[in-house]
């Protein structure tokens, strides 16, 4: 996990953070497809970026997605206490893809995410990662917003999950197919930029369990949180406690899971 901090020593990783943030914000604000609740929630094509950037740029995408969402809040006029949840949620949105690609044994394709080889298995692996990343983002944001007493967990959690998942699942494969080889050729993949000693090893016996934990924990958190949230009265306390447990377990899984792309591309 130390690469989350040590990446800030590398100039190209810092520039990647800035560019990811700017691109995410630039597409997030003006482009929307379907308005679900006018003025509040819509399906945005930009929600594909944290997932595919996470797979390609690793920790730079996590920071970039968090900053990009913050910029979106500032320029979109929704900057406020809820932006803290948006920052952490989008950081996780970008981090999950980085941690999971190649780690979902036995369903993992164990090839580069360019959809040229073993495409069917890659599609399945990518869809699981996109939904897991969307769910992790959804539960964190919904938990913080519920804590702030703005929107109930049961309303916001499923809404964000659906919004993020649809855009990420539909747009991710064609975008990776078209851009991954070019970005690899430019030498911008994180295995090319981060020092080998900074990359977290995926050799631990706990690695597959923690990887699947990253998939299952947000979905269970969302499901249980939904039912607790809809039970009026004691719901608020229960959702708060559930979120506290959920975020600790999610963080523990994230720390245990090592990245796998560097092994796949032969850089480690």
């Amino acid at each position: 996990m130390r690469e989350i901090l040590t990446m800030w020593r590398d100039t190209r990783m810092i520039m990647l953070v800035a560019v990811v943030a700017a691109v995410y914000a630039a597409v997030l604000i003006p482009f929307q497809t379907f308005q679900i609740i006018p003025g509040i929630t819509s399906i945005r094509p930009a929600n594909v970026f944290p997932v595919i950037f996470g797979i390609m740029f690793g920790p730079a995408a996590a920071w970039g997605s968090a900053i990009g969402n913050l910029i979106g809040d500032i320029f979109g006029g929704t900057f406020g206490p809820g932006s803290v949840g948006g920052f952490v949620g989008n950081f996780t949105f970008g981090l999950v893809g980085y941690k999971l690609w190649g780690n979902l044994t036995p369903l993992s394709s164990r090839v580069e995410p360019d959809f040229r080889e073993n495409a069917g298995v890659q599609l399945g692996e990518y869809a699981i990662i996109a939904v897991a990343a969307s769910a992790a983002c959804a539960v964190i944001i919904a938990w913080v917003v519920d804590l702030l007493g703005l929107v109930p967990f049961a309303v916001l959690g499923p809404t964000i999950l659906i919004n993020n998942s649809i855009a990420a699942v539909v747009l991710g494969p064609p975008l990776l197919y078209l851009t991954y080889p070019r970005l690899k050729e430019m030498g911008l993949l994180y295995p090319d930029l981060l020092r080998a000693e900074d990359l977290s090893s995926a050799g631990s016996n706990l690695n597959p369990i923690a990887a699947w934990g990253l998939v299952v924990v947000p979905l269970v958190w969302l499901g249980v949180g939904f039912f607790l949230s809809t039970g009026a009265g004691a719901g608020l306390t229960s959702v708060t406690a559930l979120g506290a447990v959920g975020i600790v377990v999610l963080a523990a899984c994230t720390v245990i899971v090592g990245e796998r792309l560097s092994t796949i591309v032969g850089r480690a």
Binding site: V19, V27, T179
Partner: peptide
């Protein structure tokens, strides 16, 4: 429909972000 409209963003998103990332190395 929703899927078709989302897919129609692919020709828009690819040039936008490839233009953005092309200069990362030189800027660094």
């Amino acid at each position: 429909n929703l899927i078709e409209r989302l897919r129609s963003f692919v020709p828009l998103l690819v040039p936008v972000f490839m233009t953005a990332f092309r200069n990362v190395n030189t800027q660094s």
